[in-house]
Every structure is written in structure tokens, then in C-alpha cells.
């Protein structure tokens, strides 16, 4: 479990905060999505959790150990797959994994056997004689994952891990994350493509301009994927809300009524409105995706 409290990062003194007062808990047995546009601060947050970027203020506690003050202990329970994995270019996979294993006190022989086993599992064993510099981006991601698996830590940080993988790789990763969840591991998965998280994440933290916008809970996740009804009416008045109330949550947005959280069958709604002397000029039903919801959420913040 990872507890993030008031986490803030300034890259430049007096500059804009890349991450600002972020509070978040990444629970065991859950896949926590982390979504935001490019430059929102996802990578910066994940790097601070991984202990490779120093926070300007705030704390990250990994299974009780502070990542700054008790780094060795905290790092032991983190597996991090960076957005763009970068390794000692001239090294080869097995020897580098044995080197990494040394940080966990694993002896040479055990490390070597384990390395071979894992490399086979992530399907890059055939490239063991190749220098890492010659790996493709997807292969580097697989190797990065392999290097986390040496000890199977309790917490996993995946920064845009599905990005750059082939379909087989995406399938493998999605299944792998579900496996981790079953093993009660805490998984933190960032993406700028919200739909990646559909049918995968248990909750999604939305970050924009370094600030946490909201956390979408599992039940909300289900709800937001339901339909949205947009009704265009010329003569909106207060009374209309009473009519719409049983159908769901109604909001007036720029001369339109947006109905979400649909609670009952709305096939008779249009007729009902007309009967009540409303001039309906448009009636559309859309299945809202996470994506739409996401842009709706951050829309206000993002108009620059």
C-alpha cells in the first residue's frame, strides 16, 4: 500500500508546481488508474513514489516506509516500470538482472536462475545475448518489468505501460495486472488514454496541471459509462426539473439539459415533455465513455 500525502514538486524555484499537494492512497488488491493529459504530472508523481525524484514537500509512504528517509526499505517493496525505460546501454539482460538482484541481497546463482525464468515469462529470453541498447521500446518495457519481478514487490508502478506494446503485449500486461490484483498487490497505472482503464482499474485518480481533480470510485466508474441524454428545449423553466427528476440527474448547460445517472426507462420522456408544452428541438442519447467524462471533468481547468 502506498500513501501519498500533500506531495508537491517544483522543478524550478518559484516556478510552476509539476505536482501540487497531491493526496492519494494506492490500496493493496486494487488497480488504481492515474489519468491526465500530457504534462499533467503523472510521471513526476510516479518518479517521486519510485524514489528517483526528490519531492519538494509532502511524503510518500510505501508499506510504512518513507521513500525519502527510509528509501532502502521502501524501495524493496516497489517495482517501477518507467514510461521510457533506460538501461546501461552496453549491458545484457541476464548480467544486469544479476546486478539488480544484488541490491536485494540475492546471490549470483539464485539471481541467474531467476533471471532466466523471468525473461522467459516476459518473452525476451531470446534476446539475452543482445545489448540492451539494441532493444526496441517494447522490449525495454518487458525487460523493465522483468527487473521488477526479481523479488515480486508488494507495489507496482506502471507509467504508461501499455503505450508502445504490441497487441499481444497489451493482452499480457492486462492479464498480468489482473494476476497481481488477485495476489493482493497494489498496482498504480498511469495513462493519458482513459479508455485503457475501462474494465481494468478499480478506481481512477484524475490529475490535471499537477493537481488531483477527482477520484472516480468503482461504482461511479460504472455509472459514468451509462448513457447521457441531451435535450434541447427553447422554453426552459423551473418546472421542467420536477418532470425530469425521476429519470436521473438533470443539469442545464448552455441552453441544453443534460441528463445523467439515468434511473428509469426514458423512452416516453420526449412525448411527456411535448405534452407539457415544451418546445423540444433536439433529443439525443449518448453512451458516455470515461474519456468524455474525463474531458468534462478537466475541461474547465484546461481552457487556457
Amino acid at each position: 500500500m502506498i500513501k501519498i500525502k500533500n506531495l508537491t514538486k517544483y522543478f524550478k524555484k518559484n516556478g510552476k508546481a509539476a505536482v501540487s499537494s497531491l493526496d492519494l492512497t494506492i490500496n493493496d488488491g486494487e488497480i488504481t488508474g492515474f489519468a491526465g493529459l500530457n504534462g499533467a504530472g503523472k510521471t513526476t508523481t510516479i518518479r517521486m513514489i519510485a524514489g528517483v525524484t526528490l519531492p519538494s514537500s509532502g511524503t510518500v509512504t510505501v508499506d510504512g516506509a518513507d521513500i525519502v528517509h527510509d528509501k532502502v526499505k521502501a524501495s524493496k517493496s516497489i517495482g517501477w516500470v518507467p514510461e521510457l525505460p533506460n538501461f546501461e546501454p552496453q549491458a545484457k539482460s541476464i548480467s544486469l538482472m544479476i546486478y539488480y538482484a544484488g541490491f536485494y541481497g540475492i546471490d549470483y546463482k539464485t539471481a541467474k536462475n531467476r533471471a532466466i525464468e523471468i525473461l522467459k515469462e516476459v518473452n525476451i529470453y531470446d534476446a539475452r545475448k543482445m545489448k540492451l541498447i539494441n532493444y526496441s521500446q517494447g522490449m525495454k518495457k518487458r525487460f523493465s518489468l522483468a527487473s521488477c519481478m526479481i523479488i515480486e514487490p508488494q507495489n507496482f508502478l506502471f507509467d504508461e505501460i501499455l503505450n508502445g506494446l504490441d497487441p499481444e503485449g497489451i493482452q499480457f500486461m492486462r492479464n498480468y495486472m489482473k494476476e497481481l490484483k488477485k495476489k493482493n498487490k497494489a498496482v498504480f497505472l498511469s495513462t493519458h488514454i482513459l479508455s485503457e482503464l475501462q474494465n481494468l482499474a478499480d478506481k481512477v485518480a484524475i490529475i490535471n496541471n499537477g493537481k488531483l481533480v477527482t477520484i472516480i470510485k468503482p461504482d461511479e466508474l460504472e455509472n459514468v459509462t451509462k448513457s447521457t441524454i441531451t435535450i434541447k428545449i427553447k422554453n426552459i423553466d423551473d418546472k421542467i426539473m420536477n418532470i425530469l427528476q425521476p429519470y436521473g440527474k438533470a443539469k442545464v448547460e448552455g441552453g441544453e439539459i443534460v441528463l445523467t445517472d439515468i434511473q428509469k426507462d426514458f423512452s416516453d420522456l420526449n412525448t411527456l415533455l411535448v405534452k407539457n408544452n415544451y418546445i423540444v428541438t433536439g433529443f439525443s442519447v449518448e453512451g458516455e465513455s470515461l474519456e468524455d467524462y474525463f474531458f468534462k471533468l478537466i475541461g474547465g481547468d484546461n481552457k487556457k
Binding site: A50, G51, K73, S75, P85, F87, F103, Y104, S144, S147
Partner: peptide, 8 residues
């Protein structure tokens, strides 16, 4: 960074 993320 890939090394720094290890327990050190």
C-alpha cells in the same frame, strides 16, 4: 534512475 529505484 533504473538503479536508483532499487533498494539503495
Amino acid at each position: 534512475d533504473s538503479v536508483l529505484s532499487k533498494p539503495i
